[in-house]
């Protein structure tokens, strides 16, 4: 009996880890969407974190907590650097500029032999555990909930609704935007390192356009009116391809169909309704 249960857990262990890391990615997206900023650099930041983490583990053998800290710090620094110029952009222009960042980095990984080039980095030891991934997820989620109920949440909402008015109200819009971008980058980097340390391998093509769009879809499908939305969205989109395995050839057909139906019937996301603050 125990053996069966063990097998069951073992079989779905990576999937469960994937749920957790993708939920963190969803929250990373949420951080910027909260301010109405369509920054799609999350995949690029995830890549920076994944490469930083994997290289520190493989080449220097640093302890895992230190690796994770660095994997969050380096993309955060990168966000600080590129944050200035991109602050000027909004809407689709910001989106495409940040996607461009991912593409430029992809070419850089491919051309850098020290980073494995086209072959990527393999043999990354398995260090991510259930406790680490979901512990971090819980802390991050709690942080977002607390922030959204405080004056930070109200300021974010004001910026999202009308940036000019928010400025008039005395909110430092640029500081908020920069902080959101840095937090978003740190979370994406963290998720990237966690992913690298349970899937043994990272490659240069994993952090480009497609990844950017799927991270965005975690947040949008789940809904961005509450931090639980992106988490739920990530869970659904990560689990679907695995749950649909019995359909064999039609697996991705059903996967696509379910996404279409969910969006049509719940256009504001699965958790699109407001369940937030009382009074304000």
């Amino acid at each position: 009996m125990m053996a069966t249960l063990d097998d069951l857990l073992w079989s779905y262990q990576s999937l469960i880890y994937g749920l957790g890391t993708n939920a963190i990615l969803g929250l990373s997206m949420y951080a910027v969407l909260q301010l109405g900023q369509l920054s799609l650099g999350q995949a690029a930041f995830m890549g920076i974190g994944a490469y930083t983490g994997a290289l520190l583990t493989l080449r220097l053998g640093l302890p895992f907590p230190l690796v994770l800290a660095a994997a969050a710090m380096v993309p955060a620094l990168a966000a600080l650097v590129i944050g200035g110029p991109t602050m000027k952009l909004s809407g689709v222009h910001l989106a495409i500029a940040t996607i461009g960042l991912g593409e430029v980095l992809r070419v850089a990984y491919i051309n850098t032999d020290a980073m494995g080039g086209a072959l990527g980095l393999s043999g990354i030891p398995e260090k991510s555990t259930f406790a680490i991934i979901f512990g971090l997820l819980a802390v991050i989620l709690a942080g977002f909930i607390l922030a959204s109920r405080s004056k930070i949440g109200r300021a974010c909402e004001a910026i999202r609704e009308d940036e000019a008015a928010a400025r008039v109200m005395g909110i430092d819009v640029s500081a908020y935007k920069m902080t959101a971008l840095v937090i978003s980058a740190a979370l994406a980097g963290l998720a990237g390192a966690l992913n690298a340390h349970f899937s043994s391998f990272i490659g240069p093509n994993e952090f480009a356009f497609e990844a950017a769009v799927s991270i965005l879809s975690f947040a949008i499908l789940g809904g961005v009116t509450t931090p639980f939305g992106p988490v739920l969205g990530a869970f659904v989109l990560t689990a679907l391809p695995e749950l649909l395995r019995p359909f064999h050839d039609f697996r991705l057909v059903f996967n696509g169909l379910i996404i279409v139906l969910v969006v049509i019937f719940l256009p504001r996301g699965i958790l699109g309704f407001r369940i937030r603050r009382t009074g304000g």
């Binding site: 069951l8 079989s11 990527g120 391998f201 490659g203």
Partner: peptide, 30 residues
Amino acid sequence: KEQAINAAKKLIGRDHVVALLGPTLSNEMF
């Protein structure tokens, strides 16, 4: 790669296969 891992675990843990063939791409094998 994530799906390759999940597929391997499903085949080993649920279907109790004796051996595995594939995966198609080197990235997935890693």
